[in-house]
Amino acid sequence: MSSSTASEASGPTSVEYIQHHLQNNSIGDGGFWVLNLDTLFYSWLLAGVLMYIAYTMGKKMTADTPSGGQNVLEAIVEFVQQQIRDIFPGSNPLIGPLALTIFMWVFLMNAMDLLPVDLLPQLGQLVGIHYMKVVPTTDLSTTFALALSVFALIIYYNIKIKGPMGYLKMFLFHPFGKYLIPVNIIMTTIEEVAKPISLGLRLFGNMFAGELIFMLIALLGGASLYGLLPQIALGTVWAIFHILVISLQAFIFMLLTIVYLGMAHQEIDEH
């Protein structure tokens, strides 16, 4: 971490260094129609890793003599199952895989944050890739892809369980009853729209800030040789703390998904 930063420090200023690190490697003509190749690459890579693990483990797992990897996966699956059992009313075959996927995928994407900030971008430089953001969850596109997918499911299940009229009634008569319909519409709309926005922004904000702090810590060592010691110390402390953050964010995203979908599955209560 330190050596790569030190070699670069002579070139760009701190601001340039950070701006460079916040630049996605993208193609497209600006605006919405842009593809962030680095985000896609790393999230697909991690999705591939997950698929590989899921496929091999699903094939070779045994009920009688579970070993290493299977035990870990069983613990995760059981943990997710327990959360669903506690929170989710009724049963839905989709909610389990959905929650598990969110938890593991978001965790893996967040975990890219623990790699030294300059390691992969610097390797990219060597083969001629000039911009690279390694952590897919520091890209709003990723967090909102997840959040909007969940939002779509919330709307789908609201309509499916409550019926179109029931869903409409929820907007009209919730939370203040039938005499405050305009207020109800505004309140419920805000409540519903806040769900995906808070989901997407929470994950993005946490991971983006974490990444930014890693960059600032990396700059310490780059500034001078005396910065090396604090950089190592702070980097270690922040990385250890960040293990908590990445797990927690993955867990919160999963938990809120279950909660929101659970709310969508509840019959409307009359006021």
Binding site: V34, L35, L40, A47, W105, S141
Partner: peptide, 11 residues
């Protein structure tokens, strides 16, 4: 960006 669509499909 449009990355969103790719990520949704991946998801």
């Amino acid at each position: 960006t449009a990355t969103l669509i790719g990520q949704m499909i991946t998801f």
